[in-house]
Design a protein around this nucleic acid. Structure first.
Lengths: 343, 343
DNA sequence: ATTAGCACTCTCGATATGAGAGTGCTAAAA
DNA sequence: TTTTAGCACTCTCATATCGAGAGTGCTAAT
């Protein structure tokens, strides 16, 4: 294990590098962090730390920068808990004081605040409906042959889907079918609504067999989809171009295309996050080589203990971990609170 | 007016510059575009064209590049109509063959195709509900004190809004209120639902006066909002970094922040577009100085002659205007068609 | 065990240089 | 009168050179 002095030096390097993005030299540390030992001694320690894998040197005779392992050590053992400033707190509160329209908007706003406060890119996966309960089902006729299937869940999420209806179906037929669906589906969780279960509806109403066939098919497909895939929002990807890490346009381009690939980002967030805790994934710890130079910090939000969605911050490995963690902590608390009173 | 030879030269310069992003010299034109006149003659003509404001010189003794006026002339008089390739046609058809879930998804997909095919950034304002008719209103109880107001329009768009309900309201109260709302609102256009009109509902049901008060307020607010503001989608902003215009990170950063500002982009699209035609706005023709170096091509989509939304492509003034116009034309046709059968 | 001293390494910014592309002008050719 | 060849000139851009500066590792002294 590292001795006390090595730890102090490692901490100084990580902190300084996060702040300046410049490789940190022995002289800087001695002067700026008042270690009480000479640069030469620090140099020796730094050589040790490099050998142990905590530091790296961009090129011979430059200062040192933290390696992924260095950041990991910092994150696990050294990172301070920072208090948010009054300004930051106000900004968070402001969002959650506004009256909400839809769940989705609240979540989108949340993503925006996180990005504003951290200056990194924020990504959020909206409500996943796994454990939600059906509140209401409605089938409406829009025009000849076209209808709209509407499903409402107890989280206030509304799914809808344009469907084809047999032209001879009357309004009262539709009402009967709607009622039947409601009888079968209301208060069931999305997970409980299996194709098998739905087969029973068909036997209830043989007369509409054909209409029900497609209807049920569409409904199941739609629910299946919403189980896993909440909508994805990303905010503040342009902010990243402020960091020296992206002064090279090629790198900026790669990062932005990555963010635009929603499916990929969903997989990343899902893989990275663990329920009810903040997880930090640093550089090469990510199993995707495209993310080798990024760190991802994720957490989830929930209501009544049920996991609803995931959000995360992505930035260069030289990330202000402690600030991001504080902000995520605070925002999650507010969001969970808002959700539980909202619903 | 320009004589024939000047026009030929101007065209050559615009075409070449759009393709290469390099200032075009007299020699290049003589060789590549086989004018049958010598570079010296071309030089004289180019000097004239510059004096007339159609060309500009990035610096003394570089080649010429088109000015905004030059592009404008090209767009108005010289631009060829290009046929789409089979590949491009297929890509467009593929999108519109898929079964649609919601109107919004179709629109989002459309935006994505446009960006894919043009390689520029595509922006789209989703359905504005001005002239849509209310199909159905539903008020559901989600939990104690919380409810959900759902409004369905004849375009299959579903608005929803979480609301507070008096705790003592029973389910049958809600049904009565829902029915009342439906009686008053169904088949009305969004524009027709004014606060005055809604006052009459209250007089119908004095017993629920307080509940109705907030309910009506929320409903009107929600409709008001949806009249103007469809959701905004942007696709392919990262693509822009491929253009040499953005090799400077600072410029890339500015562009991306611009795109992220949805409100601004909505204003731009609305100001730029004219109903039922493709409009092209070049560089300084845009009244916003932030857009001085960009061109915007917009058009709108509609169903049954009613304007539903706007979409546009934004890119550097050195834009492949004819290609973008062809693609927008084709996509609008397909989209309008899809919308009319969808609804 | 620590540190001063020093030679050495590497980057980075400034400066110089030359090739290349292109122009405008003049004078000759058509 | 119009076109063109020729040429001197301008400006950019890529490359090379150079020195300052920052930082290191090693050695020897403390």
């Amino acid at each position: 294990m590292l001795d006390d002095r090595k730890i102090k030096i490692l901490r100084a390097i990580v902190v300084d590098y996060i702040a300046t993005a410049e490789p940190v030299g022995s002289r800087t540390i001695a002067r700026k962090y008042r270690m009480g030992i000479s640069p030469a001694t620090i140099r020796n320690e730094m050589a040790d730390l490099e050998e142990l894998g905590y530091l790296a040197q961009p090129y011979t005779s430059a200062g040192r920068i933290p390696s992924d392992k260095g950041y990991r050590f910092y994150v696990d053992f050294l990172m301070p808990v920072v208090e948010l400033s009054q300004r930051e707190l106000n900004e968070i509160r402001r969002i959650f004081k506004k009256r909400v329209k839809e769940l989705e908007d609240l979540i989108e706003e949340t993503s925006r605040v996180i990005s504003n406060l951290t200056n990194y890119t924020s990504i959020i996966i909206g409500p996943q409906l796994h454990e939600s309960r059906i509140k209401h089902v409605e089938i409406l006729k829009l025009s000849k042959g076209k209808g709209l299937l509407i499903i409402v869940t107890n989280y206030g999420t509304v799914l809808n889907q344009i469907i084809e209806l047999p032209e001879n179906l009357t309004d009262s037929d539709l009402t009967r079918i709607s009622n039947l669906f409601n009888n079968f589906l209301v208060e069931k969780t999305v997970d409980e609504i299996t194709p098998d279960y739905m087969e029973r509806i068909k036997s209830e109403m043989r007369e509409y067999e054909q209409a029900l066939d497609t209807l049920i098919h569409v409904l199941i497909e739609r629910l299946e989809e919403s189980k896993e895939n909440g909508k994805v929002f990303a905010s503040g990807s342009s902010r990243m171009l402020d960091f020296p890490e992206f002064k090279d346009v090629e790198k900026a381009r790669n990062f932005l295309s990555l963010i635009e690939e929603e499916d990929f980002m969903v997989r990343v967030l899902k893989y990275t996050s663990k329920p009810n805790q903040i997880t930090i994934s640093i550089g090469n710890e990510n199993p995707w080589k495209e993310l080798r130079e990024f760190s991802i910090i994720t957490t989830n939000f929930s209501v009544g203990g049920k996991n609803l969605g995931i959000f995360g911050v992505i930035g260069p490995t030289r990330m202000d971990y402690s600030k991001v963690v504080s902000i995520l902590n605070k925002v999650t608390a507010y969001l969970n609170d808002a959700l539980s009173t909202l619903i």
